[in-house]
């Protein structure tokens, strides 16, 4: 249904930790594998062994460089690099749903997952136009819109052991940078993580109210600012090798069982 539900029972989504993501693309390929074999049409690839290979992916990992603004404590800060996975954010106010002329795009009432009913989709592409995040890709072979399903065919799947009822990308992430849960429940692990680490929205000004949250990278390159605490630890025990031997002798005496 093209109309958005007034509210959803739960807000299932992902929390992605930008402080931990190493940019390995494991989530990208795992997603490709699972979704090629499962929900809807396979994710096809065009010219896979030729000059312009391209294909449908539901999750992609970008990377950005941030040049911090100099300040008094860091007059010449080093540039930072942030790996940045991105899939559908399962927005509460999902414009991709309301623009859809056929009702193929819809948001589920029970968990807020935004899905495409591939049997109804005409492949007009408008939903992808309306998504600020680039979360939808039209499959060229099948002519229908593909997007992250939040692995709706895993998370409730009774053929999978309980622990495995999480999205494929979450299960596979070697660094543990992806978390899955109910962001509508303030007591869920993911909600707590978001609160603790200052989880943020992408393009909040778009008014899409994404369910997925991003945990910002922690502050970096601060060790020199701690020199006042660290320097005393490094006070020399002696200036000369001779003095050092003297210190050594005394220090050895102090060891348990060290006295002559």
């Amino acid at each position: 249904m093209t109309q958005l539900p007034n509210s959803t029972d739960r807000k299932m989504g992902l929390v992605i930790d930008l402080d931990t993501c190493v940019g390995c693309h494991a989530c990208v390929i795992s997603c490709k594998g699972w979704n090629t074999e499962n929900y809807g049409a396979p994710l096809s690839d065009q010219d896979p062994y030729g000059s312009d290979p391209s294909g449908t992916f539901l999750n992609r990992v970008h990377s950005y460089e941030v040049q911090p603004t100099p300040c008094s404590s860091q007059p010449a800060p080093a540039a930072q690099l942030v790996h940045f996975p991105k899939s559908c954010l399962h927005c509460e106010d999902a414009p991709c749903v309301t623009v859809c002329p056929t009702g193929a795009s819809y948001k589920r009432v029970e968990d807020g997952i935004v899905l495409v009913n591939e049997d109804h989709c005409i492949g007009c592409g408008l939903c992808a136009w309306s998504c600020p995040y680039g979360a939808r890709e039209l499959d060229l072979a099948e002519g229908v819109m593909k997007k992250c399903t939040l692995c709706v065919d895993r998370i409730y799947n009774e053929n999978l052991p309980e622990v495995d009822r999480v999205p494929s990308c979450v299960r596979t992430c070697p660094a543990g940078a992806r978390h899955f849960g109910d962001l509508g429940d303030p007591d869920s692990d993911v909600s707590k993580l978001v609160a603790e680490r200052g989880g943020m929205d992408l393009m909040p000004e778009m008014g899409t109210k994404p369910v997925n949250k991003y945990l910002p990278p922690r502050p970096k390159d601060t060790i020199e600012e701690e020199i006042d605490i660290l320097a005393p630890l490094l006070a020399p025990v002696a200036e000369e090798p001779q003095g050092f031997m003297g210190w050594l002798d005394k220090a050895l005496d102090k060891l348990p069982g060290g006295a002559h």
Binding site: S63, Y64, E65, V66, Q67, P68, P77, P217
Partner: peptide, 10 residues
């Protein structure tokens, strides 16, 4: 955090 620049594409 500072000036952001797209680095490697996905």
């Amino acid at each position: 955090r500072g000036a952001v620049r797209a680095f490697e594409p996905p």
